[in-house]
Amino acid sequence: MEEHKFILFLFLSAAVLVAGIFHFLYSTTLNPPSESEGLQNPLKKRGFVLVFMFIVFVVLLFVTVPKSPYFLFSNETPAKVVYVNAQQFAYMMSYKSIDLNKPEIETDVELPLNEPVEFRVTSVDVTHGFGIYNSKAELLIQTQAMPGYVNRLRWKFTEPGKYNILCLEFCGSGHAVMRSSFTVK
C-alpha cells in the first residue's frame, strides 16, 4: 500500500525542510552583513505565517475528515459479519455471536473478496487492539477492543490471501504474541 510510504515521505520531506530552514537561520548568524538589522517587519511576517498555517489546516481538515474510518461502508449491508471477542492473549472469532459459556469458535475464518464485511469487536477482559495486516505485513485498518463496548469495523478486502490480526493495544505480558488470522477468497 502506497499510503505507508507516502506518510514517511511526507514526514521526511517536512523534517528536511525544517532542518534546512534552521540551518539557513544558523548560517545567517555567523557572518551577518554589517549593515544588517535583522528581520524586517516581523509582525507582518508573523501575520502572514499565521494566516497561511490557518488556511493549510482548514484545507487539510476538509480533505481528511471525510476519509475518517467512521464513515466507511456505512451505507452498505455487510456480506458477512464476524464476531470478535478478544481476551488475554487470543482472539475468539465466530460468524455467530459468542456465548462465553459455550463458545463456538471458528478456527478458519473465510471472508468474501470485494464485498463489505463487518467485524464486531469487543473484549472480555482488558482493552485490546484489533489491527488487520495484509500478506505484505502492512497495517490496513484497526479498531480497539474495549470491554463493555462493541466496535463495528467495516472493510472491503480487494486482494485474496491470508490476513493477520495483531493486538495493537498493550494488554499484558503476552501482548506481542496475541494474534490470529483469516483468509479472503
Partner: peptide, 30 residues
C-alpha cells in the same frame, strides 16, 4: 483533530517567528 491542529498555531507560530526575529542576520555567539 481540529484541536490537535490548531494547538500548534499559537505556540509554534508565535515562538518560531520570535526566534527568527531574534536570530536572523544577527551576529550570535553560539
Amino acid at each position: 483533530q481540529i484541536a490537535s491542529y490548531f494547538a500548534t498555531i499559537p505556540s509554534v507560530v508565535v515562538t518560531i517567528i520570535s526566534i527568527v526575529t531574534l536570530l536572523y542576520n544577527n551576529k550570535i555567539k553560539w
